[in-house]
Amino acid sequence: MNSRDAILSRIRAAQGRAGAPSAPETAAVATYIAAHPSGPRPPSDWDPLQRLRERALSLTTTLDEVADLAAVPAAVARYLRNNQLPLNAVCWAELAALDWTSAGLQIEARETHGNDLVGITGAFCAIAETGTLMLLSGADTPGATSLLPETHIAVLPRSRIVRGMEDAWALQRAECGADAMPRAVNFISGPSRTADIEQTLVLGAHGPYRVHLVIIAA
């Protein structure tokens, strides 16, 4: 008997069942998964944008709000200059067409190879309950852009703010397909951190030191 069958038959023996899983057993599991009910959620009597703002700030994510997509380069340039950060960056393909040059920025739409100091991404959505960004990896949305640079800037339309993680999954099912999953779903809640040394909080353990969120109103 191979390891797989040995483990599975040990499990069944321990549960007092013999042979392969019966039709009712597999049906019960399939039914539960198909229904995927949500569990109890904490009360959410707050305004999503307001809540996202509060939670993000408490995670030391900084925020900016602009009127439309065309205003993003100027907002990014302002943030980088105010924080004395480099004015060149890599970005996701979807942001390549913005007029970065007029804002005085040098932005390349490509994957990062580890030396870039600023990475600019979009986001699938943001979760107000926890101040979290949800990013889906793909050919045009590489995960490393939000991870390797010291500064991560995310651009998000206000309409993409959901209340809880359940709503984020529902949106992902609706837009990508019930069974579709990207290679990586990354939930990001503020800059990288560690408290491994004497329980002292330090930002920028391996990932970004700074996360900045630009919300587009329209």
Partner: peptide
């Protein structure tokens, strides 16, 4: 919530780094 919750499914997809 922890800073990163990563849900990984399968190897890199077509054209994706990973």
């Amino acid at each position: 919530i922890s800073n990163y919750v990563s849900v990984t499914t399968g190897p890199a997809q077509a054209g994706e780094a990973g």
